[in-house]
Design a protein around this nucleic acid. Structure first.
Lengths: 188, 188
DNA sequence: TTCACTATACCGGCCGGACGGTATAGTATA
DNA sequence: TATACTATACCGTCCGGCCGGTATAGTGAA
């Protein structure tokens, strides 16, 4: 039962928790309310339907994505490096939100998919500004995507801030060297 | 309403359809039965619970994965090439099953996650037998994963066998050239 | 300062329907 | 008649969503 922050924030955080740990089927209104330490009525005051709850999550993700893009564009080691480095799932607020939203990327819920498409577009542009060759840029981005999805879908640490380097984890250092080599091979 | 094949097969196919198109929340027993053109009783004759239905899906995926691994190991262009090539989502039976199972990769349903872990392990070993360097092999595999997940989670063609090369699609040919170069750079 | 009124935030109970699952009767084939 | 399978009816529970009500804080006029 989460008890810090405003009720609205807690509800959103609880929704994320349930989506990540137990999946969309378990993330019912009642469960979310209970996890947030709020009554169902209280939850529905802030989000008057399941759809609104999802919309709130997407909006939060959009906001965090904007901040992240800003940091990414100013990374001293370049956008490509940043993207791969941050794809190992650090357990940040942004990571949690993205992973939760990913669990909802389905069928009719086109708003979620649209938000992801937008985010991917932005990331690609940033990586392309770092690695000029479109194909190599795409390859690097896909590599980061693979890392992120694998972690998000299967190897997620249950409690945040825990061992990101679990058993069978990928050697990101070595991976970054490969990426650096790819970047160098294309000039610039 | 699907009407070919045995009832059991149709039920499994319907479950996949619903998971892919409408997500886990919509894939209820009633909806699956209706989509399969079978009564709920008929469905429960073959799979006597939701859990059993999921187990059936996982088992099907395991079987198809074994076949796929066999084909992969004998590809004339090498396992790495095969992996990346087949990651663009061809709409094959295997693809559909994997994507459906992916939607269930969550919380307590550890059997699904275990099956994926197993599959990944097998793929990695095959790629490593093709590309000797562990890091490069991992990079290539992650690239394929990224391709696959992006397609599975966001850019899925609604009707199978449709345009796999949709708008904003990735140039796989070019990507394969990058992979070939990575393979060559490591010798062998 | 007091009164009337409003806005915000939240609670807990309730309803109709959908859900997972069971029981059972029925049917086609061998 | 046995086997393999299907369809219907139903049960108890849970779910999404709504509603009446409460507590608090604030606002403006007298």
């Amino acid at each position: 039962m989460t008890t810090q922050g405003s009720a609205r924030e807690r509800v959103l955080a609880a929704y994320e928790d349930l989506l990540i740990n137990d999946g969309p089927r378990a993330a019912t209104l009642g469960a979310v309310a209970a996890t947030a330490g709020v009554s169902k009525g209280g939850l529905l005051y802030h989000f008057n339907s399941m759809e609104a709850l999802t919309a709130g999550l997407v909006e939060k993700m959009r906001e965090l994505a904007t901040v992240d893009a800003c940091i990414m564009s100013e990374d001293p080691d370049g956008c490509a490096s940043y993207y791969v480095r941050t794809s190992i799932f650090g357990g940040t607020t942004f990571d949690r939100t993205v992973v939760a939203a990913m669990r909802l990327a389905q069928g009719e819920d086109s708003t979620v998919r649209a938000a992801f498409a937008e985010m991917h577009e932005r990331w690609y542009k940033l990586i392309l500004s770092d690695i000029k060759d479109p194909t190599v840029a795409r390859a690097v981005m896909l590599l980061g995507d693979g890392l992120y999805y694998n972690a998000a879908l299967f190897g997620l640490p249950t409690t945040p801030g825990q061992d990101a380097e679990a058993a069978g984890a990928v050697d990101v250092e070595a991976l970054l060297r490969v990426v650096a080599q790819m970047r160098a091979s294309v000039g610039q």
